[in-house]
Design a protein around this nucleic acid. Structure first.
Lengths: 194, 194, 194, 194
DNA sequence: CATGAATGAGACTTCATTCAT
DNA sequence: TATGAATGAAGTCTCATTCAT
């Protein structure tokens, strides 16, 4: 594995553990097993490292959302949404400290906001993907046509997002089973079995 | 207005504007119109100021939630929930940078997490209040007894929370009307008119 | 003496001894007997300290040049010019490392060039003052009207300037007497006794 | 052109453009179109490169001064001195940033001063050459025997040197014609036509 | 001889906190 | 209580030089 990857992985670990504010270049270098100077052979500066790591977040969820478009008409809608919700819970929970950190440095956000929005990289992208899936299911007739797909997507992902936030806030850990149960409760409420 | 309040308000302004990372004691003092030394006559340290400001967030929403318990059986459920959602959107949007900042300083969170949970001060408290309201409405028979009150609460507040997050992330501003429309779409989806 | 003055004097000493490149804030602080942080309570940055010291150079010569305008028609022209030359030799010799240092940091020069020229602070100012004096002596009839006053001024100060440069370059020290003799040779050549 | 020459030329360009302080090995390598490592295959270190470039300065002037010794009794003295002055103005103007840079690194100067003086490499050498020429002209009877040749040399070169310094300081550019006029004014003042 | 990633020493600067006035 | 200069620890980043390829 090349040093750049090693640095990125080390930085991710440190950032998620210590938060952006308490993540020092010294600590990243120590975790990557290289000198501080080496960081700057591969990244322009600390902000660059942070952004690199940030862009790598939510990979799992994004993968699920990509595959979601191919699941229109397959399995059950509930099952598909549960899969999304579980991934969202996992990724949001793991990434929350990193994603939130950007608000502690609004100038970084400002500098890259335009790019995020243009390249459609922000967390908002997930909601659009779920809404798109639901609209296709409406077309295919598996769910009623009069529901507000975007709102349903926002309810699923929003509740997962806030739940993940609160887990991080209170320091509680959830097992995979708990996550799955939460996902099912959400989906069941929005699409109750007859 | 005494100096302590002036400092707190100045700190809130600076924190929301500059983010925690770029909020310095010098800047707070300047905004409060006093010397840096004075900060320490009213607060133990910078962390103390931050926590003081943090505890003052979501005041508006919390007020609405308190009054909510008295609205059981009054107005319509939808109307009551819309009021909650609008307040949540407002407060979450305004407070997001501050609330999220805590994840950039996990040691502060760690030191105060227990207290937050014990005194029931965290943002999670809101969801409980809405769930409690909904359960009372179930008892009163205005809404079906078989819905999962906590999940509905999570959907309402979660979608608002994430929506507020994304507004802050993308830098978009919403008018009161847009906020109201979003709130109504959420509530309408969860409690559709017949 | 207040700390700002102490820092400035310490910085001047260090800058003249070590040159700009090897003058560190740590060294300035040590010489001033304060912490590095204190430097920044009185100066914006290292460049600011350098400029502050730079502006204080050639004080002696500038004083002589000011008084020179009052010497029109007094003493002898030769004597007056010798005084100028001796002061120039002294100040140029002492300040040469500092004055030249600015060419090792052209961006600093660029940033402040306009200001220097506008406020007439640069070393070029001395030549104008000597030329002005000579023209007044021409008007008073003590020296011939057909000589090029500016050129004579440039010869006097230029030769002193280059001489000072070369002393610094070769590391030779000159006694006051040697300086005086050099000054006299210059003036005698330009204004030979009958 | 071999790489050593390419590096030296690149270094000269960078040093004159950016100043010694902001001249990095990375930049020299970039300008030379080679790797940083290659610098060390041709020079011992950065200081070595700097000295190599420094020794190459004033080439033009030095050539004129060499030919000057052969001009005794030829052309007019004024004309010969004008040629010297023009070359001096050109070379001093171009080399000033580089030559002055040495005072920002006194330890380099200290380490090599002895060698400079012994090998007669410094800028002071020019003055001696002009003085030698003038003395020969005194012997040949073309100029009066009682003038101080060394002082005249110092006036010619000193005024050019300081003029070049001030041009660099104020950022003014001079045309060849302006340079020639300045040279003529200097020479005319020192050797007025009858 | 050419390369360029890795190094590590050290530079400048920031900032929360203290304390004498 | 109010001040604000002084502190010193710590952080980010630069850069000449080395060395394995």
């Amino acid at each position: 594995m090349d040093l750049k990857t090693k640095i990125a992985e080390a930085a991710e670990l440190v950032l998620l553990t210590n938060g952006l504010a308490k993540t020092t270049t010294k600590e990243i270098a120590r975790a990557a097993g290289c000198s501080e100077g080496s960081l700057y052979n591969h990244f322009r500066n600390k902000e660059d490292i942070f952004l690199h790591v940030l862009r790598g977040q939510l990979k799992n969820l994004m993968g699920v959302l990509t595959s979601l478009q191919g699941l229109v008409g397959k399995e059950t809608v509930q099952h598909n949404l549960e899969k999304v919700a579980v991934s969202a819970l996992e990724d949001y929970t793991n990434s929350m400290p990193l994603i939130c950190s950007i608000f502690s440095e609004p100038d970084i956000l400002l500098r890259h906001r335009e790019g995020f929005v243009q390249r459609n990289e922000g967390p908002h992208r997930a909601n659009e993907a779920v809404a798109a899936y639901l609209m296709k299911e409406q077309e295919s007739g598996r769910i009623m046509g009069d529901i507000d797909a975007r709102v349903v997507a926002d309810c699923v992902l929003g509740s997962c997002f806030q739940h993940a936030f609160q887990l991080n806030f209170t320091g509680k850990q959830e097992s995979h089973e708990e996550r799955f149960n939460y996902a099912r409760r959400i989906v069941n409420t929005l699409f109750p079995d007859k």
